[in-house]
Write a protein that binds this DNA or RNA. Sequence first.
DNA 1: AATTAATGTTTACAAAGTAAACATTTTCCT
DNA 2: AGGAAAATGTTTACTTTGTAAACATTAATT
Lengths: 187, 187
Amino acid sequence: MSYHKKNLKEKLVEVAWNICVAESWEKVNMREVAKKARVSNTAFYRHLKNKNDLKAELVRRGFEIINKGKKNLANNFSGYGAHYIRFGLKYPYIYDLIFGNTDLDISLYPDIEVLFDEAFDGVIQGVKTFMPDASDKDVMIKAVNIWASVHGLVGILRRSDLQTNKDKRLKWIKNNLEEYLKMTTFK
Amino acid sequence: MSYHKKNLKEKLVEVAWNICVAESWEKVNMREVAKKARVSNTAFYRHLKNKNDLKAELVRRGFEIINKGKKNLANNFSGYGAHYIRFGLKYPYIYDLIFGNTDLDISLYPDIEVLFDEAFDGVIQGVKTFMPDASDKDVMIKAVNIWASVHGLVGILRRSDLQTNKDKRLKWIKNNLEEYLKMTTFK
DNA sequence: AATTAATGTTTACAAAGTAAACATTTTCCT
DNA sequence: AGGAAAATGTTTACTTTGTAAACATTAATT
């Protein structure tokens, strides 16, 4: 039992991230996180206020990955959408944390609110590149529609994984994300 | 303390529903539910196996409301969409329960899987009414796209409630759901 | 009426979040 | 360098919550 690890906070968040990715947030508990970080049950509380703050950390990490898709928006907008969808399918439980519930009171974490806005701004920028002359209102409507389509698609595709006899055509969509997006929303 | 209430199960589910609607599932705890039903802490377990079963009951109740929107699909498809969206905005925490997470292991509740399929079938039927000659694949693609758009829109509009300075144009969408839907997805 | 099933209650425990007091290490100031 | 103060870990302990087990009462069945 050596006192004073370096970057214990990082370590704890990392451990929690791994548990959440593999087994969902419900399975993340402080004692287990502490054990895997080889530290006492409550060491955590020297670094974060409470478990909800830990959740916020995972949300921030998730956004880091999501926002990487924003490179090259102008000529690869559907790539951003596909990137977002793949994130949702690869990290479903993180995705749940970010978009799935309202339990995490966002107003407590203003920086996270900013991350949301940044992600959405990516959509707005993308829309403008192929609707350069549209009014702000029309851009907003299209952006909402695209964001909704992409976000909603994640829900459908995820569920199609869970369910047994889901239509095989969903598999086509999943394996041809960009084509599907161009065909439906990105136009 | 009178033994043997009639319909205690109904009562417990009702109480849990009310708590969940008002304060989210996280605030639903067995002792509080029992207290509000004026019954001992564990009476619940004579009627349902565990708390997850209670969650499943709330999901079923939610679907009852959602599926009421399926009347009159042929000539009021956008009404179905608007109904769905209004459900999501009126019962956000129930909506979370249904669509927001994957914690509730659906394969444990086959009847709920059926409810999902029924709701989605409504979309397929609706699409067929205005794309009568489309192939099954195209119908499916359009249906997924519409469902995604509608589902995703709920997420955006809900969040726009939570956040402070959200674009006012979202308010327009919220107050003109059917028009928005016709304009974007239902065409 | 007697047995059995159904349904409530009481008691009790285990898991999990976290507060508080204590211990050790590091930092920083003179 | 020496010692106070801050930072960071640990131990202990309390509370909340889900739920199992044993017991009590009422309802159903024969």
